[in-house]
């Protein structure tokens, strides 16, 4: 099994990023590359579907943090959904649940974007 694989697909105005495995200092460049690729393509609303994400270290959190200002300056956002218990604990411990909107499911997250339009 590889440490990390990432699926990216578009759902309306949002791009859904599904990392599967582990985001740590070894795999973070791959994760960062996927996010930066979307921003460079003008896709500023990004939903991280974390259902297959086993853990994320501070290296991965830094990658998200590094892009948040750019996407919000362009009227986009980074949303999170389907966080496993230990992944939620990491986000919550660091106060990230106040910085990012967290949803129980992808459907809920996408619906919140539709309501905004």
């Amino acid at each position: 099994m590889t440490d990390l694989s990432i699926q990216v697909r578009d759902e309306g105005c949002a791009s859904v990023v599904e990392p599967s495995g582990f985001i740590n200092a070894h795999t973070v460049r791959q994760f960062e590359g996927a996010l930066e690729g979307l921003v460079q393509a003008g896709r500023y609303t990004i939903l991280l579907n974390c259902r297959e994400l086993n853990y994320i270290s501070s290296a991965g959190l830094g990658a998200i943090m590094g892009l948040i200002e750019t996407v919000r300056e362009n009227k986009g956002d980074i949303l999170l959904c389907n966080l496993q218990e230990n992944v939620f604990a990491i986000f919550d411990t660091l106060g990230f649940t106040q910085l990012y909107r967290v949803f129980p499911s992808e459907e809920d997250a996408l619906a919140s974007l539709t309501e905004q339009d």
Partner: peptide, 20 residues
């Protein structure tokens, strides 16, 4: 963490996670 949320920046979180 409260200041971090107000002034987000990249890095500096590893030691915080270790201590928490």
């Amino acid at each position: 963490p409260k200041e971090y949320v107000k002034h987000p920046r990249k890095g500096g979180l590893g030691l915080l996670l270790m201590s928490r």
